[in-house]
């Protein structure tokens, strides 16, 4: 879709986060976190619940304003990007707790994802003539391609609120893809899915990355998936970065093992703990 393929693995840095700090009242959600995302890679962000992963994504796409630190995107350092500017600059995302437009159909949700590419004009829309009509049809064709890609043809006219959870996650991915992003932020895209659905979703993510060359930042709890599909992994714990590297490096890092197995670590979900050791690779 955008960002030339072939750059994968090269050192081109798409996004760099340096010394980011974010606090809510007394809670340090992020403390001096620095890492980078290279063009074309799949970058996983992992860590126990409450580690600050979602907050990290929220800072990257301008939903939260970090108190300190900078985010350099495509070579430009920004302090306060606004959400819709981030979107305009090619950052799209999905959410941990699905944030679809519930009463709209799957198709309309995906078409909404294309709004930035459309030059909607109230008057033409009202007449549904000329440019408005041509534009609608052209973008409809693009939306249909995404629908085919995600294999959701059968549900395109159903309000998403009525779809099962797994399909909603897929539609949400479709809405993000509709914007033809350069950087795609996925917040637990496989949360709450069964094994089969997880496999489908992993396949979609890999396909997006490989076919369109989209750079992906991914939060995921299932270590098997993380190890399988990501190029590099950054690990957060209590708002601090505790490890950063390839899946293999991270897996054996004592700090990571400690963070995941540590007994005094509050409400980490049970599934996270065994995953680290049972990783196939």
């Amino acid at each position: 879709m955008s960002a030339e393929p072939g750059e994968r693995g090269s050192d081109g840095v798409l996004l760099e986060v340096s010394n980011l700090r974010l606090a809510f009242g007394g809670i340090q959600a992020l403390f001096d976190v620095s890492f980078d995302i290279r063009r074309g890679e799949i970058r996983a962000i992992i860590g126990p619940n409450g580690a600050g992963k979602t907050s990290m994504l929220n800072c990257i796409n301008g939903f939260y304003k970090p108190q300190q630190g900078t985010i350099t995107y495509k070579g430009r350092a920004v302090h306060q990007m606004r959400s819709h500017d981030a979107a305009k600059n090619g950052i799209a995302r999905t959410f941990q707790n699905i944030a679809l437009f519930r009463s709209m159909t799957a198709l309309d949700n995906i078409m909404t994802g294309r709004l930035l590419k459309m030059r909607a004009n109230l008057l033409w829309d009202a007449l549904y003539l000329g440019p408005a009509r041509r534009e609608e049809l052209a973008h409809r064709a693009f939306a249909e391609r995404i629908i085919d890609f995600l294999e959701i043809q059968a549900v395109r006219k159903i309000p998403v609120g009525r779809l099962p959870y797994g399909l909603q996650k897929r539609v949400e991915l479709g809405r993000a893809l509709a914007a033809e992003p350069e950087l795609l932020l996925l917040d637990e895209p496989m949360g709450g899915m069964n094994v089969e659905e997880k496999q489908d979703m992993s396949r979609f993510i890999l396909d997006v990355n490989q076919e369109f060359g989209t750079t992906i930042a991914l939060i995921e709890h299932d270590m098997g998936v993380v190890m399988d599909i990501s190029d590099r992994v950054v690990v957060l714990d209590y708002g601090r970065k505790i490890a950063d590297g390839t899946p293999d490096q991270v897996r054996t890092d004592p700090a990571v093992v400690e963070a995941y197995l540590g007994v005094d670590h509050g409400p980490a979900p049970a599934e996270e703990k065994p995953c680290i050791s049972s990783t196939p690779s």
């Binding site: 796409n61 939903f63 959400s83 819709h84 981030a86 979107a87 305009k88 799209a92 995302r93 959410f95 944030a99 679809l100 437009f101 519930r102 009463s103 709209m104 309309d108 078409m111 909404t112 994802g113 709004l115 930035l116 459309m118 909607a120 109230l122 829309d125 009202a126 007449l127 549904y128 408005a132 534009e135 609608e136 809405r175 993000a176 914007a179």
Partner: peptide, 29 residues
């Protein structure tokens, strides 16, 4: 005219704001 507006980009932006304004803003509305 209203029917046309609500089935085009204009209407989808409205409904997106209605259904979930935060998400709408994050996708660029």
């Amino acid at each position: 005219a209203a029917k046309n507006m609500v089935r085009c980009a204009t209407g989808r932006a409205w409904m997106a704001i209605r259904d979930m304004d935060i998400a709408a803003e994050i996708i660029g509305i």
